[in-house]
Design a protein around this nucleic acid. Structure first.
Length: 991
RNA sequence: GCGGGCGUGGCGAAAUUGGCAGACGCACUAGACUUAGGAUCUAGCGCCGCAAGGCAUGGGGGUUCAAGUCCCUCCGCCCGCACCA
């Protein structure tokens, strides 16, 4: 019987569905295992072969763990809120829910073809009110919690309120920060209006509203989080992003900076990913130092990691946007400063980053050096960022590259303060050297000097130890329609006269109030237009009913729904909790998480943050959501390109391009001669103007007409992507090509040996590059099992690699050969005979290897192991069930369809599914032979093979080796000096 | 500049963690069967050499009986961050 995957796949799918074999429930008799994939955003384009790579790997792993006796949770769902559906809605008026629904159906169809073992009864969609009810619920928890730095955990806001009621908020309390609000007593607190109290609470809530500098994307009409901005452009769409001051919801992720850092040491993620998170959090230890500015009412604070270099600080630099800038500018310097500030304002972030020009201007003011009393000038410069530290630095040109450049350009004083002569090659970051010209620090090592200086400034009360982070609170408002509404309404309050004038707070007369849990979900209403209003308000602001209820009109960002979805899978139907306690206690957290590294500082950081909050509040049983993380690589597309001579319809075959670009041929006529063809070309009139556009003119005629072939004609070529379906083995199907575009119908193709050969390029799979390979097509041609195994066979899972449709035949052949172990021309050939030692050795060797490989997720080598086993068993003509059955089970995670079918066939257990059996154990005893060949090295080179047997003792082994002809030949001596033993066996003879 | 990763045939890649380098697959070559082959089977396939043998894991050096693997150094590639004080 032939291997007919189409029939097999259909039958298996029906069987699995009927028997519901992938349904999973809490089972306390088995250990749990949670295998999760990052759920996809259902885009209209459907899946390409790159998307399922991680899903296939996780499915193999999940199926394997199931066979190993674990109760495996392996769910799938959709991250369904997001910009593309909304952009589409703006353009077409189609409700995003409809677009999303269509896309989800398509995704589901495609995934079903691949044979995943997802428990679809646990499917989640973030845009489903039954789901986002709990996203809103968690938001309320964030809103109604604060971070207690003494206990180092989040607590309900009530504990803070009762603290205020009892003690007030004064300098005695560790968390009091006079920069946020003035102190108040318990009596003060009680006398405050609700609004006044709320203003203060906003400084502590984990979800809060405040004015912040946000990344504003005009084209999207929306605010973006830092991780959604790449190189000054929006990650989605690539539109320019500017900075804008807006009142926004934010999440106080910064309180968790240290715990997010420390947690990294407890989880099994790749170093590069952990480093990305570390880098993003950007913890740096240093000190805060205040400078007295004579005549000013304020102290100028700087942050430095090198307070030891204070005696080398010869000027200060403040960011152009610094809050005290106006006070620092003297009348004398005002014209120059205004000019400079205007210049800085005119430069975009991208310009600032790209041309790191040394620019700056003197403010006119001076600060006093705290120890020497010397007047040190205060400058402003672009290279000091308002958003980091205090927005001001003390410049030490002797020990800092940028400060030195700045000092050189503007002729500022340089004082050498560190003698590094004894540490050759040490960099500034190494913090090595001896202090000089530094008064009481002289002679100290840098590291000691830092400690000493901190001690001194703390004593003088002008500075303190300080840890600084790059991490900012996460922007949480989006002025969009297609997202979760906030469970927040505004209560109108009459008073605007707070005793605390807290920056530009006065314009908000209303106070945000969290809705009651019982009012959830707050469902997304219908709106007439999905367009952002343009004035920074969301489409919801156009819904009269919504506005009348005073509900928040912004929606939550894309990462809201994805920050906790792994919990919902544990108990997706629950109406009284985000997931029931029983389910959460049983499933705990994700054991292995598969997904792309593009979420390194977005989703993966936010999830960890949310998880820690839920942990603090007692809802999560663990500190971390994802124990192990596997970053699957991307499968790239292999695009085909044709080479078009610019401004013509002439297309040159690759061979011709290569000849021209790689060789000595620069004259187009030589090329034409070589390929024995006429070529259209441009000619010019002798005055340098091109007068004749591409024309197919025989060379002689052209010469007679006085036209000259131009070298640049052939050099001036564009590579154009064309649909990869027109190309096979790099050869272009010319007819298809001509039919593709009207423009190409009359293209002139310059061939190479009668063929048009295309170039190729490896790039991201995308519609616009015409290089998308649809898994449906691959499955139709080779079957789902082959597709799955080939994706794994392509290379290590973490690695990015191009899709190579040629290689797939190898896996296809393997499956056919494997099939023929069970069926030949005459039919079923499996017998009940006892297996031979040789057969058992193949079996157990393979089982061992497969088990180890899957555990380590070396899925490419495990596919190889199956190929080797099949080759060897084919050579042995094996037809014993004792060998084939265990091998079949081992293959089941990889090829679920073919194995299920064979399992249900003649002679095999005719009941149940192969996917509910047990993974076969290997037995070491079949692997060791009593006799074996061992390589004998002589002075490190393998010179001979010797047949040894297990019962030989060392002396006998020695005798065998010395008896070898090669040994006497190579040693020139009958008595070698030494035998080298490895694992009890002699493997080398040293002369 | 800083941090992380990597460099092995024509190609994708293996290599028990220091122990027969190139498993497995693609491509290629030859042969068999065939009306045919984008089917199947057999054999070959790093380089030099008729062979014996020698040389080979980016280059150079070192440790070791033994190095793709460990150490030093140089070169090259990929990813992330980047005026972070």
């Amino acid at each position: 019987m032939e291997y007919k995957f189409t029939d097999i796949e259909k039958n298996c799918k029906d069987f699995w569905k009927k028997e519901n074999i992938y349904k999973v429930d809490i089972d306390t008799t088995k250990p749990k295992f949670y295998v999760l994939d990052m759920f996809p955003y259902p885009s209209g384009a459907g899946l390409h072969v790159g998307h399922p790579l991680g899903y296939v790997a996780s499915d193999i792993y999940a199926r394997y763990k199931r066979l190993k006796g674990f109760n495996v949770l392996h769910p799938m769902g959709y991250d369904a809120f997001g910009l593309p559906a909304e952009q589409y809605a703006i353009e077409t008026g189609t409700h995003p829910a409809i677009t999303t629904d269509t896309a989800i159906k398509r995704y589901r169809e495609q995934m079903d073809k691949i044979g995943f073992s997802f428990d679809w009864s646990r499917e989640v969609k973030t845009c489903d009110p039954n789901y986002y009810k709990w996203t809103q619920w968690i938001f309320l928890k964030l809103f109604n919690s604060w971070y207690n730095r003494e206990k180092n955990k989040a607590e309900p806001i009530e504990t803070l309120i009762s603290g205020f009621e009892t003690y007030g908020c004064t300098t005695g309390w560790k968390q009091f920060d006079p920069q946020l609000h003035p102190e108040f007593s318990a009596e003060d607190w009680k006398s405050f209006s609700k609004k006044q109290q709320e203003r203060i609470l906003q400084f502590y809530r984990l979800a809060y509203r405040s004015y912040t500098e946000v990344n504003w994307c005009e084209a999207l009409g929306c605010v973006l989080a830092n991780d959604e901005v790449k190189d000054g452009k929006s990650e989605r769409g690539g539109y320019p992003v500017t900075r804008k001051r807006m009142r926004q919801w934010s999440l106080r992720i910064t309180e968790y900076a240290d715990r997010l850092l420390d947690g990294l040491n407890t989880i099994d993620w790749s170093e590069s990913l952990k480093d990305q998170q570390r880098n993003w959090i950007g913890r740096s230890e240093g000190a805060l130092l205040q400078f007295h500015v004579p005549g000013a009412e304020f102290l100028l604070e700087v942050f430095t990691t090198r307070i030891d270099t204070l005696f080398g600080a010869t000027f200060l630099v403040v960011a152009p946007e610094h809050e005290y800038m106006q006070q620092l500018i003297t009348d004398e310097q005002r014209p120059a400063m205004e000019e400079y500030l205007a210049y800085v304002g005119s430069r975009s972030d991208i310009e600032r980053q790209q041309e790191k020009a040394v620019t700056g201007c003197f403010t006119g003011s001076y600060a006093e050096h705290p120890f020497t009393g010397i007047k040190i000038p205060i400058w402003t410069a672009e290279y000091v960022l308002a958003g980091y530290g205090t927005g001001a630095i003390m410049a030490v040109p002797a020990d800092d590259e940028r400060d030195r450049k700045f000092a050189e350009k503007f002729g500022l004083t340089v004082i050498e303060i560190i003698d590094k002569t004894m540490y050759e090659g040490a960099t500034i970051e190494d913090k090595l050297g001896k202090m000089i010209n530094s008064d009481f620090l002289n002679g100290m090592e840098v590291k000691d000097a830092i400690e000493e200086m901190i001690k001194r400034v703390e004593e003088m009360n002008i500075g303190k130890r300080q840890v600084n982070y790059k991490l900012r609170d996460a922007s949480y408002s989006r002025q969009r329609y297609w997202g979760e509404p906030f469970p927040i309404k505004y209560e109108v309050q009459g008073d605007t006269d707070s005793p605390f004038v807290i920056e530009d707070d006065q314009d908000e007369a209303d106070i945000p109030v969290g809705l009651d849990e019982s009012q959830l979900p707050v469902e997304l209403p219908q709106v007439e237009s999905y367009k952002p209003s343009g004035d920074g308000r969301s489409p919801l602001a156009t819904n009269a009913d919504w506005v009348a209820k005073n509900l928040e009109t912004d929606t939550m960002p894309g990462y809201a729904g994805s920050s906790w979805y792994y919990f919902r899978y544990m108990d997706p139907q629950n109406n009284t909790a985000f997931a029931g306690k029983e389910a959460v206690d049983y499933w705990q957290n994700v054991d292995v998480y598969f997904g792309g590294s593009e979420h390194a500082v977005g989703h993966l950081l936010y999830s960890r943050f949310w998880h820690k909050v839920l942990f603090d509040l007692g809802y999560a049983p663990t500190e971390e959501p994802f124990k192990k993380l596997v970053n699957q690589g991307m499968i790239q597309g292999v695009s085909s390109v044709v080479y078009r001579v610019n401004g013509t319809k002439i297309f040159l075959s690759k061979g011709i391009i290569d000849k021209v670009l790689n060789s000595t041929i620069y004259n187009i006529s030589e090329v034409v001669d070589q390929v024995n063809l006429q070529l259209g070309y441009q000619a010019f009139d002798g005055q340098g103007n091109t007068t004749v556009a591409a024309a197919k003119v025989p060379m002689e005629e052209a010469a007679a007409a006085g036209m000259t072939l131009l070298n640049h004609t052939i050099k001036n070529i564009s590579a154009l992507n064309i649909d990869i379906s027109f190309v096979s083995n790099d050869e272009l199907d010319i007819n298809e090509f001509r039919r593709w575009r009207n423009d190409y119908a009359d293209a002139e193709l310059v061939l190479d040996n009668g063929k048009y050969i295309c170039g190729s390029a490896v790039e991201k799979m995308s519609k616009s590059k015409y290089n998308v390979v649809n898994p449906d097509d691959v499955i139709a041609q080779y079957g789902a099992d082959c597709f799955r195994m080939f994706e794994m066979f392509l290379g290590p899972i973490e690695q990015s690699k191009p899709w190579d449709d040629k290689g797939i035949s190898g896996v296809s052949n393997f499956l056919k050969r494997f099939w023929r172990l069970f069926y030949d021309d005459k039919g079923w050939r499996v017998t009940e005979e006892a297996a031979t030692p040789a057969e058992l050795k193949v079996l157990h060797k393979t089982l061992k290897k497969i088990g180890e490989d899957i555990e380590k997720l070396n899925l490419n080598t495990s596919v190889s192991a199956f190929m080797i086993a099949t080759n060897e068993l084919t050579a042995l003509k094996t037809n014993k069930r004792a060998v084939l059955e265990p091998l079949l089970i081992a293959l089941a995670p990889f090829a679920p369809f073919a194995t299920e079918w064979l399992w249900g066939e003649n002679g095999f257990k005719n009941q149940g599914s192969i996917h509910q059996t047990a993974f076969p154990q290997f037995d070491e005893k079949y692997l060791t032979e009593s006799e074996f060949d061992y390589p004998v090295s002589i002075n490190g080179k393998v010179r001979a093979q010797v047949k040894l047997s297990l019962d030989m003792d060392a002396q006998e082994v020695e005798k065998h080796i010395l008896g070898l002809e090669q040994v006497t030949r190579w040693t020139n001596s009958a008595t070698p000096k030494k035998f080298v033993f490895v694992k009890g066996r002699i493997i080398n003879v040293v002369v």
